[in-house]
Design a protein around this nucleic acid. Structure first.
Length: 423
RNA sequence: GGGGAGAUACUCAAGUUUGGUUAACGAGGACAGACUGUAAAUCUGUUGGCUAUGCCUUCGCAGGUUCGAAUCCUGCUCUCCCCA
C-alpha cells in the first residue's frame, strides 16, 4: 500500500472535493462507504462511479460498504433537484432495492471479498422520532443545515420551496454514517459531487457526537463539453445497466460515440487499466484517431463488465458488420441471427409479407419514428437505407429485398438499425 | 380577501392593440444530408397528423360573435407578482 490511492484517483479525474487529511487516513486499511437510494429499478451509468471508486479502494486492500438506501429513498434526497421528488411507495422501494442489490452483486463479483452490502432500513426503521430529533437533532442548528447548497437552492426557489421531509434528509444520511462508523468502523464516505453536503453533515455529526475524525470525498459530475450530463443519451434518457432498459448493443454504441475530446478522460474514469496501459492506448489513439482505438476499448471494456464477455464480443462483431462496408449477401446466417437478437427487430410471417407491405409501415413500427410523416420526411432526405442502399420510394417490399432467405436490414441515418425477419 | 400580470409546439419566445397569404416570426435543442472517422467543427435541410403535390387538426379549458378567431366576447381552471 505504498502507492497513494488518492493520487491515482486524482490522476483519473475521480476526485472533486476532499476532506483534508484523507491522504494519511488511506495509508492504512480503512472502511469506506457509499450509498444508493433505490429510486429506480435499475442503476444507470452515473451510478457506476461510486462502485468504480470502491473497487479501486478494494484493490488497495481497503474494505467497502455499499449501502442501499431504502430508508433514505423513503424520504427523498433534495440534492440536485429543483422540485420535490414524487414519493415512492414502500413496496416499490423494496422491489427497487432488491433489483439494485442484484445488479451490484454482479458488478462487484470479482471483488466481492471485502465488500459488504447493507440496507439502511434495517437500522432506521427502529428509530424513534422523539429520540432522533433529540439525540441527533441537537447537534445541528437549523442555520447549519440551511447553509447546505441543496437546501439553500430550494429555499430561494419560491415556486417549490422545500418540505420538512426533504430538509431532514441530510440528517438521516448523516445518521447512516454515524451508525456505520460505530458498527462497522467506517471512516470514509464517498459520493457524487452533489453529495458533498450530505457527507459533511455525517462527518460533523460523528465529530460532535463521538469526537472522532472521519473523512469523505466526492467525484465530479461527469459532463460533456456542452455541460450536459454524461451517461444520458441525446434525448435525455439514462443509459441503464439493466439490459431490458438499455440493450447491450445500445450500451456499447453509446461508448463508441464518445468524442475524441472526451474519450481520454472517460477511459481513465471508467476502466481499471493502469496508467501505463492507458498512456500507451492514448498514444496509439492519437496516431490515427479515425481508428477509434480508445472508443472501442472503452465500449468493449464496459460492455464486458456490465453485460458479460460473450455479450460484449457478439456486439462488437455485429457492430463491425453494421457499420463497415461488408457485403451482406455473403454473410452467414448465424450473423443475421446475432443481429436479430441484439438490435431492434420485428418478425413477420411469410404469408403476411406476401400480402404486400410498404416500407413506411415497417419504419413506423421500428420505433425510430413516432409518425409516418416523420419517416416520410426522412425518406425524402435520403436517410433511409434498405440493406445498406438508399431507398427513395415508399415501395412494397418483395422477395428481392430479402437477403439470406429471411432478413431485411433497415438503416436510419448513420447509426440506427432495424432488422426484419420473415419466415 | 383586494389589486395586477400571464398561459402559444420539445424548451425559450413572437404574434393579440388594427380578426383573413399563420402549421403559426425567431432562438435553442433534436434529427437528417454534405464533408469525415459511428469524432469535432462547418454548411444545408427538417422539426402537428394523414389514406400525401391534396386533406385534416392545433395556440390553458368550455362556449359565443363572425363568411372567417391564437387574435373579439362570456364563463372556468391554473401560475406568478403586489397589498392585507
Amino acid at each position: 500500500m505504498q502507492k497513494n490511492i488518492i493520487n491515482d484517483l486524482l490522476w483519473r479525474g475521480l476526485i472533486q472535493n476532499k476532506v483534508p487529511g484523507i491522504e494519511n487516513q488511506v495509508k492504512k486499511p480503512t472502511t469506506i462507504y457509499t450509498g444508493f437510494d433505490p429510486t429506480s429499478d435499475s442503476l444507470h451509468l452515473g451510478n457506476l462511479l461510486p462502485i468504480i471508486v470502491l473497487i479501486h479502494f478494494q484493490k488497495m486492500g481497503h474494505q467497502s460498504l455499499i449501502l442501499i438506501g431504502e430508508a433514505t429513498g423513503f424520504i427523498g434526497d433534495p440534492s440536485e433537484k429543483d422540485e420535490s421528488r414524487i414519493f415512492l411507495k414502500r413496496e416499490k422501494l423494496h422491489d427497487n432495492a432488491k433489483s439494485i442489490k442484484n445488479q451490484i452483486i454482479r458488478l462487484i463479483k470479482d471483488h466481492s471479498e471485502g465488500i459488504e452490502l447493507l440496507n439502511n432500513i434495517n437500522w432506521i426503521k427502529n428509530l424513534y422520532f422523539l429520540e432522533f430529533i433529540r439525540e441527533i437533532g441537537k447537534f445541528f442548528t437549523v442555520n447549519y443545515l440551511m447553509s447546505k447548497d441543496s437546501v439553500k437552492k430550494r429555499m430561494k426557489n419560491n415556486k417549490n420551496g422545500i418540505s420538512f421531509t426533504e430538509f431532514s434528509y441530510s440528517l438521516i444520511q448523516g445518521y447512516d454514517f454515524l451508525y456505520l462508523n460505530e458498527v462497522k468502523n467506517c471512516q470514509i464516505q464517498i459520493g457524487g459531487s452533489d453529495q458533498w453536503g450530505n457527507i459533511t453533515t455525517g462527518i460533523e455529526l460523528i465529530k460532535r457526537k463521538t469526537g472522532k475524525k472521519v473523512y469523505g470525498f466526492t467525484f465530479p459530475l461527469i459532463t460533456k463539453p456542452n455541460g450536459e450530463k454524461f451517461g444520458k443519451s441525446h434525448n435525455g434518457n439514462n443509459i441503464w445497466l439493466d439490459k431490458n432498459k438499455t440493450s447491450p448493443y445500445k450500451f456499447y454504441q453509446f461508448f463508441m460515440n464518445v468524442s475524441d475530446e472526451n474519450v481520454e478522460r472517460y477511459i481513465k474514469i471508467y476502466t481499471f487499466l493502469s496508467k501505463e496501459v492507458i498512456d500507451n492506448l492514448i498514444l496509439n489513439h492519437k496516431k490515427d484517431p479515425s481508428k477509434r482505438i480508445l472508443q472501442k476499448k472503452l465500449a468493449f471494456y464496459l460492455t464486458e463488465w456490465v453485460h458479460g464477455y460473450e455479450s460484449s464480443k457478439t456486439i462488437m462483431k455485429i457492430s463491425n458488420i453494421l457499420f463497415n462496408e461488408i457485403n451482406l449477401e455473403l454473410l452467414d446466417e448465424k450473423y443475421f441471427m446475432m443481429i436479430y437478437e441484439n438490435i431492434p427487430h420485428m418478425f413477420l410471417s411469410y404469408i403476411e409479407f406476401k400480402k404486400g407491405i410498404f416500407i413506411l409501415d415497417i419504419l413506423k413500427h421500428s420505433g425510430f419514428f413516432t409518425s409516418k410523416s416523420e419517416s416520410y420526411r426522412a425518406m425524402k432526405a435520403n436517410s433511409i437505407l434498405l440493406n445498406k442502399k438508399i431507398i427513395k420510394e415508399n415501395i412494397i417490399l418483395t422477395k428481392n429485398n430479402i437477403i439470406c432467405k429471411k432478413y431485411i436490414i433497415f438503416q436510419f441515418g448513420k447509426k440506427e438499425f432495424f432488422i426484419l425477419k420473415i419466415d
